[in-house]
C-alpha cells in the first residue's frame, strides 16, 4: 500500500535491519533511510494522483523505500511546487511536475519554473490528440484546416485559453495558418468537455489521448491526429499529426523533481529506484491497462525537455497575447 500508516514503524524496523539489508550498499550513504515524501499538486483521484501512486506503489516493492504521498492541489500545481521548492534539499521530498510548470511564469501566475528543481525522471507522456464525434463532417485534420481556411469557425473544447490543450491547438493553428478560425471553448475539465464533444456542442476536442481510449475503441470518437512523433500503442489506428503534415508535438507530462540543491548522488539514487519501479511488472501492467503512454526520460534528458518546453510555451503564449513576461 502506498500510504502512510506503516511509514514510521517500517522505518524504525528498517533502521535496525539496515546492516543486513543488501539493496543499498554502504557507499550510497544509506539513502533512503527515511520515508520519501511525494507532493502531488492535484487532488486525490485525478490522473496525476493515480499515475504517481501507481509508480510509488511499485517503488515501495522494488527498492525498499517508504513513500508518503501528500496531495496539495491548488493553482494548477503551483502550491505543491512552491512547497517542494522551499523544502529541505535532501532527496526526501519530491514534487510531481505538472505540465503547467512550463507556463506558470509566462502567465504571471507564479515565479516557479523548472529551474527551481532538479529533474529526477519523466515516466509518462500522455499526448494531446484531436478528436471528433462519429458522424462529424470532419474526417481528417485536412478537412478541419480547409474548412477553417474557407472561413468556417471551428469550435474546440479545451480546459481554458491558457491551458496546455489550448497551447497545443494554437501551435497547430499557427502551423496551418488558421489562428483566427479556431474558437476556444473552455470547460472545467475533461469530464465536462467529453460529453460536449459527444453531443456536438463543439466540433472538436483536444484532450489527453488516455482520456478517450474507450470512446475511440467504441467508435464514438474518431481520432484526427495525435501530437506525438510515433503512433501510440493504445490507439494504433490514430495517425500522428506529423503523418498529416503538421509538425507539432505536445502532451501532459508526469514526472518527478526534487529541490534544486539536492545532491547529485541522491538524485541518482532516486532515479535508480524509480526507474526500477517504472520497469517493474506491476507498473507496466498498470500502464497497459489505463492507456497512458509510458515515456521514460532520465534526469538529464527530462531537464533538457523541460527547458525546451519552457521556451516553446513562452513563444506560443506570447503570440496568444497571454504572456506577462
Amino acid at each position: 500500500m502506498t500510504n502512510t500508516s506503516f511509514g514510521i514503524r517500517a522505518s524504525l524496523l528498517g533502521a535496525t535491519m539496515l546492516a543486513a539489508a543488501s539493496a543499498y550498499p554502504a557507499h550510497a550513504q544509506d539513502f533512503p533511510s527515511e520515508p520519501i515524501r511525494i507532493v502531488i499538486g492535484f487532488a486525490a483521484g485525478g490522473s496525476t494522483d493515480t499515475n504517481t501512486r501507481a509508480l510509488a506503489n511499485a517503488a515501495e516493492q522494488v527498492c525498499d523505500a517508504d513513500i508518503v504521498i501528500s496531495n496539495q492541489p491548488g493553482g494548477s500545481g503551483v502550491l505543491a511546487l512552491e512547497t517542494v521548492r522551499n523544502s529541505e534539499a535532501d532527496g526526501y521530498t519530491m514534487a510531481t511536475t505538472p505540465t503547467e510548470i512550463s507556463a506558470l511564469k509566462h502567465l504571471g501566475l507564479s515565479d516557479v519554473t523548472h529551474e527551481d528543481f532538479k529533474a529526477v525522471m519523466r515516466f509518462i507522456f500522455d499526448p494531446h490528440g484531436f478528436f471528433v464525434r462519429s458522424g462529424s463532417d470532419y474526417k481528417s485534420m485536412d478537412d478541419v484546416i480547409n474548412a477553417a481556411k474557407n472561413g468556417t469557425k471551428i469550435r474546440i473544447a479545451t480546459s481554458g485559453p491558457a491551458s496546455p490543450y489550448a497551447v497545443t491547438f494554437q501551435d497547430v493553428a499557427r502551423a496551418a495558418g488558421v489562428s483566427g478560425q479556431f474558437v476556444n471553448i473552455p470547460y472545467q475539465g475533461d469530464a465536462l468537455a467529453i460529453p460536449a464533444a459527444l453531443s456536438g456542442e463543439v466540433d472538436l476536442i483536444v484532450t489527453n489521448a488516455s482520456n478517450v481510449v474507450g470512446q475511440v475503441k467504441s467508435g464514438d470518437f474518431v481520432p484526427l491526429g495525435v501530437a506525438t512523433d510515433e503512433r501510440i500503442d493504445v490507439m494504433p489506428d490514430a495517425p500522428t499529426l506529423k503523418e498529416v503534415g503538421i509538425e507539432v508535438t505536445g502532451g501532459s507530462i508526469y514526472g518527478l523533481a526534487a529541490p534544486k540543491d539536492t545532491p547529485e548522488d541522491r538524485v541518482a539514487a532516486l532515479n535508480d529506484c524509480f526507474k526500477k519501479a517504472f520497469d517493474s511488472e506491476s507498473f507496466q501492467s498498470f500502464i497497459a491497462k489505463t492507456g497512458v503512454n509510458p515515456a521514460y526520460l532520465g534526469a538529464e534528458d527530462f531537464d533538457a525537455y523541460l527547458t525546451d518546453e519552457y521556451t516553446r510555451y513562452g513563444e506560443l503564449l506570447k503570440t496568444l497575447g497571454l504572456a506577462k513576461n
Binding site: 500510504n3 502512510t4 500508516s5 511509514g7 514510521i8 508518503v68 501528500s70
Partner: peptide, 19 residues
Amino acid sequence: FRYGLDVALPATRLFGVLI
C-alpha cells in the same frame, strides 16, 4: 488518524520518537 485512517499529521522529531 495516523493508524486508523492513514492520514499523516505533522509530528516533530521529538514526538516522532515517542509515537
